[in-house]
């Protein structure tokens, strides 16, 4: 069984009366020859690693080796504990977990790529926020990872998921889209609604360039992961409210592909444009890599 488009995904889910996560699990069993139990255990292992990254990152205020990131997760936790967060519990928890993961990634800590390391903060951010705020059990979060991977597989095969290939829209964009669809499914939405949330999320980040300062997955990557979680929740809320995407998800993905293809090389993770080429960005690069010149 091959599912190549969001349209096909919705059709097959309706035909088989399964949700997206269950379809992914079925497809993986057929393709890999592994039994369901083994596959679920492998996914659980990934969820556990994600949790460990969130937990260690939430307490660690140390700077990254470059010195340009670190310490913000702890600040966010303190701020939330004072009850000041304006964006509510779901989003503010997701923000702090996402910060914790992405800061850990910059320290060369162990993380789980979802779908990439540069976008590794978004999915754990929303999943553990759901767990914290409405007690979504870990078992369901594991199923959520199957939902996310099905959405990600379709995006990856029809477009791209890395900043070097298609800009940040492809990286943080794909992760945010996967997270949005996953929230919808975990909150009982239909496959169609999950795909709608996916489309809305991609549309919101369409055209975003990949311009990391000094080539490091830190500035602006970490904060874009954080913002990705709030877009994921907003997109999910819209889809759950019954709002539709005027442009079908497959066409949105195709648009992302075309935009990425037209994006100049300087804005695709080469650090030759955007924020990387600001005065401050260039100074950071010079300070860190003066050996190179």
């Amino acid at each position: 069984m091959e599912i190549q488009s969001m349209r096909e995904l919705i059709d097959v889910c309706e035909r088989k009366q399964k949700n997206i996560g269950e379809m992914m699990l079925l497809m993986e069993t057929e393709k890999s020859g592994r039994d369901e139990e083994t596959i679920i255990a492998m996914m659980e292992e990934r969820l556990i690693k994600m949790k460990e990254a969130v937990d260690s990152g939430s307490k660690d205020a140390s700077a990254s080796p470059s010195g340009i990131s670190g310490g913000d997760a702890v600040k966010m936790v303190d701020y939330m504990n004072q009850g000041k967060a304006l964006s509510g519990n779901y989003i503010s928890h997701a923000m702090s977990y996402s910060l914790a993961t992405s800061e850990g990634n910059a320290r060369m800590g162990v993380i789980v790529a979802t779908p990439t390391a540069g976008a590794a903060g978004i999915l754990p951010g929303v999943l553990f926020s759901l767990h914290k705020n409405d007690g979504t059990p870990f078992k369901e979060l594991v199923m959520g990872l199957f939902t996310a991977s099905m959405l990600g597989l379709i995006i990856a095969n029809r477009s791209f998921i890395s900043g070097a290939a298609g800009g940040c829209q492809a990286e943080v964009g794909s992760a945010t889209a996967m997270a949005a669809g996953t929230i919808v499914e975990l909150k009982g939405g239909t496959p169609q609604q999950a795909v709608t949330a996916t489309a809305i999320a991609i549309k919101s980040l369409l055209g975003l360039v990949c311009d990391p300062v000094a080539g490091l997955v830190e500035v602006p990557c970490i904060k874009r992961n954080v913002i990705g979680t709030s877009i994921a929740f907003s997109a999910a809320d819209m889809a759950l409210a019954g709002i539709e995407s005027r442009i079908p998800c497959d066409e949105v993905i195709e648009a992302m592909y075309r935009v990425g293809k037209e994006m100049p090389r300087t804005l695709r993770e080469t650090s030759l444009g955007g924020l990387a080429m600001t005065e401050t960005g260039k100074q950071v690069k010079e300070r860190l890599f003066c050996r190179k010149s």
Partner: peptide, 24 residues
């Protein structure tokens, strides 16, 4: 279809900071 498995999307478990520029 370059990406085949759910673990191509969720994973690898890896040392940061980049899945394409480090893990791959």
């Amino acid at each position: 279809m370059e990406y085949q498995s759910c673990f191509d999307i969720i994973g690898p478990i890896m040392v940061g900071p980049s899945s394409s520029h480090t893990a791959g």
